[in-house]
């Protein structure tokens, strides 16, 4: 059985200073650590990759993130969230051009903690074949279980995982959908624990709705998940939009907490993918290529 990590257990650990920390590639990435709208002086006491951090805001609303020994960590505000890093990020936070597009509504869905690897949480987000069984009568329904061929690739120019031409029959694709439609999706993984989903936008067929999953790795087997959306929907109340996405994610949570092992296996012998899992295959390959292995299991145990 995989050892369980609690947040309390996760917090005290820090890489000893005298040895090169493992997971350097992931240490230098940006991660979501809180909602901008909920910054306060008392601060959110949380963790990032095993190190305790505090995310607070001053009276002017400027965010401040401090690490375990009181050191000031890098901080940015983007997409409704505060982002930070334990290391020295060499790149800016990935861009989502739709976040600057007029007419969209931006939805802070709020945090949900899941006892699973942050990488498992992202991989589940990239998967459509589970819709009929886990999001029954909402994102999928038997007998419409077939996953049509689609394209998944690691795009060399942007160094991101992309899946395109993904189509699936959905009984209620979104809060604003009134009946079943075949929905088209594009998936994008621009950072090891973040994914952006572009989805058919029924009120505006020429645009895509944007739904993201930002994952804060607390420990290798524990994460805080921050979904966020940028939608064209003038009808639905903000609370209904939040609840629809929370409903979807909470249906996934009991799956994620019962996968064995808790870490994402990168050894190809550990799990059996099919053609429907092309995005997951590309994601795992991309993680391995970049040594994004915090939350991964490299060899079968």
């Amino acid at each position: 059985m995989t050892a369980q990590t609690t947040l309390q257990q996760a917090m005290p650990h820090q890489a000893p200073p005298h040895q090169a920390p493992p997971h350097q590639a992931m240490i230098d990435e940006w991660y979501p650590v809180g909602l901008v709208s909920q910054l306060d002086r008392s601060g959110r006491h949380t963790a990032l990759m095993g190190e305790p951090i505090v995310v607070s805001g001053d009276d002017a609303g400027n965010p401040l993130v401090t690490g375990g020994n009181g050191r000031i960590l890098p901080v940015k505000v983007r997409y409704g969230h505060v982002w930070s890093s334990l290391g020295t990020p060499t790149k800016d936070i990935f861009s989502i051009p739709e976040a600057d597009q007029p007419g969209r509504r931006f939805v802070d869905v709020g945090v949900v903690r899941v006892r699973c690897s942050p990488l498992r949480a992202v991989e589940n987000f990239l998967d459509i074949a589970h819709f009929p069984f886990v999001h029954t009568d909402v994102l999928g329904a038997e007998p419409h279980t077939e996953v049509q061929n689609y394209t998944a690739e690691i795009r060399a120019d942007v160094d991101e995982v992309w899946a395109t031409q993904v189509k699936f029959y959905q009984p209620q694709a979104s809060k604003s959908a009134s009946g079943g439609i075949t929905t088209e999706y594009m998936y994008r993984v621009p950072a090891p624990t973040c994914s952006v989903l572009y989805k058919t936008c029924p009120p505006r067929p020429s645009e895509w709705d944007v739904i993201t999953l930002f994952v804060q790795p607390l420990a290798e087997d524990l994460c805080d998940v921050w979904p966020w959306m940028a939608l064209f929907d003038d009808e639905t109340s903000m609370t209904d939009l939040i609840h629809f996405q929370q409903m979807i994610f909470l249906q996934d949570r009991s799956i994620l907490e019962n996968q064995i092992p808790r870490l994402l296996p990168l050894d190809p012998g550990m799990e059996i993918p099919t053609r429907a899992d092309l995005t997951s295959i590309a994601y795992r390959r991309w993680l391995k290529r970049h040594d994004y292995t915090y939350g991964a299991q490299l060899v079968a145990r």
């Binding site: 029954t136 038997e142 929370q246 994610f249 909470l250 949570r253 009991s254």
Partner: peptide
């Protein structure tokens, strides 16, 4: 959410 459908209640 958190309580899955009993899929077996309906035939495949």
């Amino acid at each position: 959410p958190g309580i899955h459908r009993l899929h077996e209640l309906k035939p495949e």
